[in-house]
Structures are given as structure tokens and as C-alpha cells.
Design a protein around this nucleic acid. Structure first.
Length: 215
DNA sequence: GACCAGGCACATC
DNA sequence: GATGTGCATGGT
């Protein structure tokens, strides 16, 4: 199949402009947000993060020292709060003990090695790992989420049943490996998904990609 | 009140 | 390997 991805990116960027992702004040905050946003709308995550900030707890050592039940209540607004408190604790253990909270040091490792290590942390799956790799550690890894799959499936670019790594491969094969491009492209896909490609009630007839589907 | 959101782990077949 | 289920709040 002909490579339509550059045209897709162009249309999305023309329609929506830069998305300024990931919305966070630090790379550590990106990592927390990546876990908190699992199957959850970002507005709920924002409340949880601002709650942590309000209590001056946006710090790996302080969070790791905090009893899990207290952490759970602080991130309540993000949903699945007991589960996510446990997942954050697992990640913090990895971040502090295995990585020594050294983000430049993590960045010096290869993306493949890091991805494997992240996936070994309980509660971190492919999307969360890749979000951390791309948005916090600036590695050229494409993030695939529910919107990305749905949009590409509906537009016939991948099979609707395609698995995570197949969709990811599709992007990585057809695009230059570029952090800025991967960052903006994924953010634009989420923007498109929110505005035009909801599960039910999609607005296909006014979707900026409609002409590409028909082409 | 129903539906959905920037997933993941685990059980069962 | 595929499919189903629990986890939970807040916005529309």
C-alpha cells in the first residue's frame, strides 16, 4: 500500500496545529501521568496530579515513602485509584532502585533495553512504556493508543483487529524516526480521536481525514 | 442514567 | 492464542 502517513500528518497539523505534548512540568511528571492516564480521561488525571502538587508530593522519594493507601486517596480522581497506587509504587521502586532516579542516565541507554525493563514493571504495558520512552526520555518510539488504532482502522490504513506492535510497526516503517514528529503525530491523533472519532457518534463527514479515506 | 475515557493483569477455555 | 473480566472516577 502507498504510504499515506505523511499526508495524514500534514492534514492533521494543518487542521489543529501544534499540540504541545506532553502537558507536564517535568519528565518525572510525564512518567506519573503516563500511568495515571491508563484508560482514563486526561482531565481526571490533571486533578490527581495537581492534588499531588498541592501536597508537595511530586517527588519520587516522597511518593515512594508514602503509604500506598494514602497515595491511593490522593490520586482518587484518576479512577482505579487502588490499582494505580500499586502501579505507581512498582514504577517508583524501579525508578529509584534500578535507575537511581537518574533520567539523563536512563536516556543514555538504548530504547530497546529500556523498553524491556519498563515492560517488566508490573502495571506498565506497551502504551505506558512507549509514552515514557517518547515523552519523558525523548526516544523515537511511536505511541499507539485506542484512538490511534480506531482512527487507522476506520480509515483502512491497518486492519481493525491489528495488534499494538503491528500498528506501531506501521508508523515506524513509514516515517522517519524523529522524536518531534512522533510526539506531534500521536498528540494530533488523540486530538482527532477526541473531536471526530469517538467510539459511538463519530463525525466522519466533517473529519479532516475524510478526503484521505476516500482517496 | 448510560456511555466513555490517552490500559493492564489475570483467569479461563 | 483468543476472549472475558475487574479495576473507578468525572465529564457529556
Amino acid at each position: 500500500m502507498q504510504n499515506k502517513l505523511p499526508a495524514v500528518f500534514k492534514k492533521l497539523y494543518a487542521a489543529f496545529g501544534p499540540q504541545h505534548w506532553w502537558p507536564a512540568e517535568s519528565d518525572f511528571e510525564v512518567m506519573l501521568g503516563a500511568i495515571l492516564t491508563q484508560n482514563t480521561s486526561w482531565s481526571n488525571v490533571e486533578q490527581a496530579i495537581s492534588n499531588l502538587k498541592k501536597h508537595n508530593l511530586l517527588d519520587p522519594h516522597k511518593l515512594y515513602a508514602l503509604p500506598q493507601q494514602k497515595l491511593a486517596l490522593l490520586i482518587r480522581s484518576a479512577g482505579y485509584y487502588n490499582l494505580k497506587a500499586a502501579r505507581l509504587k512498582c514504577f517508583l521502586g524501579f525508578f529509584l532502585n534500578d535507575c537511581l532516579a537518574d533520567i539523563p542516565g536512563m536516556r543514555a541507554k538504548g530504547a530497546g533495553v529500556l523498553r524491556k525493563q519498563l515492560l517488566a514493571v508490573k502495571g506498565i504495558g506497551p502504551e505506558t512504556a512507549d509514552s515514557i520512552l517518547l515523552y519523558a526520555l525523548k526516544k523515537p518510539v511511536f505511541v499507539v493508543d485506542a484512538y490511534t488504532k480506531r482512527i487507522l482502522g476506520r480509515h483502512g490504513l491497518v486492519s481493525p483487529q491489528a495488534e499494538y506492535h503491528q500498528v506501531q510497526d506501521f508508523f515506524m516503517r513509514h516515517l522517519k524516526k524523529n522524536v518531534k514528529l512522533f510526539n506531534e503525530f500521536h498528540a494530533l491523533l488523540v486530538k482527532l480521536g477526541k473531536d471526530y472519532c469517538r467510539k459511538q457518534n463519530p463525525k466522519c463527514e466533517v473529519c479532516p481525514l475524510w478526503s484521505i479515506k476516500r482517496a
